[in-house]
């Protein structure tokens, strides 16, 4: 059971928090608000899936929030022009894949550090977006919100779809050789090369997947409201990184599981409502998020130190 220690401890913390809420703030469990709250997390969940892959392959991507914003505006403008949703989705996915590929080229083939590359692309995309859109919201046609369905049907669809995607990627990661190659490259790129795996190609592919998922997440975000806010992606990358780190994905690569990141995301997402329900001021959310990240890395650091000595 030691193998699942990190994932289980995060899940344990989540269950504990939910139990606290059940006792002291049972309002939290009213179905409709709970459903809405969960739905609001689906875009972050999709990004977390991608970020988990990126971190397993021993990289990081800070530009996903900006990519998300660009894709949201692309999808929003296309939808606003009256094109069917599927066209908007395809465009968003393509835009995301292109941005991811740019990161991938610079990081995988030019060997530049992912932190600085993605910082630079983050600034570039974010400013391009500001320049282009000037902060203006995009009004969407009525049939876009909730795919033209009722709100609860749309919410259930989103939740079902994104959890299905999580399960699917999780399965691929475990049961297809490509998924195992991500772990292998993140664990030891040189050993991977000796085993006949192409580390550059693997890293590049992961960044393209990350970008594509950012496009998907942007569309899932779009259908939740009647407008597109061009600033909707701000700080989302932090949420995704925090979820993965808390969920046991090692910054040093090669380790981590999607369901751990999922539990990490839910834990972080529950902190804010928990604060409100427990009458703690909600302004502490970001500080607590930072603290949770630090605690998670400190715990990992201490554990790996004990293992090596």
């Amino acid at each position: 059971m030691n193998r699942y220690f990190r994932e289980l401890s995060v899940t344990g913390a989540l269950v504990l928090l939910l139990a606290v809420l059940a006792i002291w703030a049972p309002h939290f469990y009213q179905p409709q608000p709970l459903l809405s709250r969960f739905t609001a997390q689906t875009p972050a969940l999709i990004l977390t899936i991608g970020m988990t892959l990126v971190m397993i392959v021993r990289q990081i991507d800070i530009s996903v929030g900006a990519q998300f914003g660009v894709c949201a505006v692309v999808a929003g403008l296309i939808s606003a022009s009256g094109a069917p949703l599927i066209v908007a989705l395809a465009a968003a996915l393509a835009a995301g894949a292109i941005m991811g590929a740019l990161n991938g080229v610079l990081i995988a083939w030019m060997g530049l550090p992912s932190i600085v590359v993605s910082l630079a692309t983050m600034v570039t995309w974010a400013e391009l977006l500001r320049l282009f859109q000037q902060g203006k919201f995009i009004n969407l046609p009525a049939n876009v919100q909730w795919f033209g369905l009722s709100q609860s049907a749309g919410q259930q669809g989103l939740i079902f779809g994104s959890v299905l995607l999580l399960a699917g990627v999780s399965w691929l990661l475990k049961n297809r050789s490509g998924g195992r190659h991500i772990y292998a490259v993140g664990s030891d790129a040189e050993a991977a090369r000796l085993a006949g795996i192409n580390p550059k190609l693997t890293t590049f592919t992961v960044f393209v997947i990350m970008g594509t998922l950012a496009g998907l997440a942007a569309v899932l975000n779009m259908v939740q409201s009647p407008q597109v806010d061009p600033k909707c992606g701000v700080a989302l990358e932090l949420r995704a990184i925090a979820a993965a780190v808390v969920g046991g994905v090692a910054v040093s690569g090669g380790r981590g599981r999607l369901w751990g990141s999922f539990a990490g995301l839910l834990l972080l997402a529950t902190i804010n409502p928990a604060l409100t329900f427990l009458h703690v001021e909600a302004y502490w959310e970001k500080a607590i998020q930072g603290l949770v990240i630090l605690l998670a890395v400190i715990a990992d650091g201490l554990r790996s130190r004990r293992q090596t000595s």
Binding site: R176, S177, G178, H181
Partner: peptide, 13 residues
């Protein structure tokens, strides 16, 4: 396994 299996990307593990 990684050493011995042919390095295809979509083969089943």
């Amino acid at each position: 396994g990684l050493r011995l299996e042919p390095p295809g990307s979509f083969s089943r593990v």
